[in-house]
């Protein structure tokens, strides 16, 4: 028992550094990916043929290929194109690729949620004289976002777990720090991976809880007296 405690204390600084890195990269990917995915989803929901197809292609390419391959493209291929703006660090490649990957899932969820708002809502607002953008902003999106909360939580947790893949391009996130720790304590592989898995769980579980809470918050029927 004392042995495990010693190992734990020895690897704690590594785990902490790794967790902080995992936390930041997942936060950036979730934030940037959600904004990008939201915009794409809204545009796609409008069924303007050219944009609908263009972004459809974007989404299907991203969803139809492994994230690891995408990461390699962003890290190895794009910087080799010679374009100045794409000469990025491994960290930047990680941020961008994970955000783009996130956006493809968010876009599909947002479009599905917008489509799921009953047609009558559009019709009623149209009949009252609302412009298309007002209908979207004031009537449809508030209801669609509510529908998007539960599937979104699943995506977010998946993004957090996918940050582990970033270890292959040298991002010193949690899994990478674990591997470094294992080099120091090769006999405690199982224990160290166990601790790492636990850290991921401790991070992901509140995300699932939070979305459950948010879902109740936005989805519940409240009686609000405006007087």
């Amino acid at each position: 028992m004392q042995h495990y405690l010693d190992v734990f204390i020895a690897i704690l600084p590594f785990l902490w550094t790794g967790f902080v890195q995992t936390f930041w990269v997942s936060l950036v990917a979730i934030a940037a990916g959600s904004v990008l995915g939201f915009l794409i989803g809204v545009v796609r929901s409008q069924r303007i043929p050219f944009f609908h197809r263009l972004f459809g292609l974007y989404i299907h390419i991203l969803r139809g290929t492994p994230f690891l391959v995408q990461l390699y493209v962003f890290y190895f291929v794009l910087p080799n194109t010679g374009i100045e703006a794409l000469q990025w660090s491994s960290e930047m490649a990680a941020f961008v690729s994970l955000s783009v990957y996130t956006s493809s899932y968010v876009a599909e969820i947002i479009m599905a949620a917008i489509d799921a708002v009953p047609k009558g809502q559009w019709e009623a607002a149209t009949a009252l004289g609302f412009k298309r953008l007002s209908i979207l902003a004031l009537v449809v999106l508030p209801q669609a976002l509510k529908l998007a909360v539960p599937p979104m939580s699943g995506v977010y947790v998946n993004i957090i777990k996918n940050t582990a893949i970033l270890s292959v391009i040298g991002i010193s996130e949690l899994t990478r720090q674990g591997e470094i720790s294992i080099m120091r304590f090769p006999r405690d592989v199982l224990f160290i991976y166990g601790v790492i898995a636990l850290v991921y769980f401790v991070y992901c579980y509140p995300v699932l809880r939070f979305t459950r809470w948010a879902e109740r918050k936005v989805g519940g029927t409240r009686v609000v007296n405006l007087d």
Partner: peptide, 13 residues
């Protein structure tokens, strides 16, 4: 031109 629908179509939110 006011319109009233069969399924009311009130804004649910």
């Amino acid at each position: 031109v006011g319109m009233v629908f069969q399924l009311f179509n009130l804004f649910q939110h």
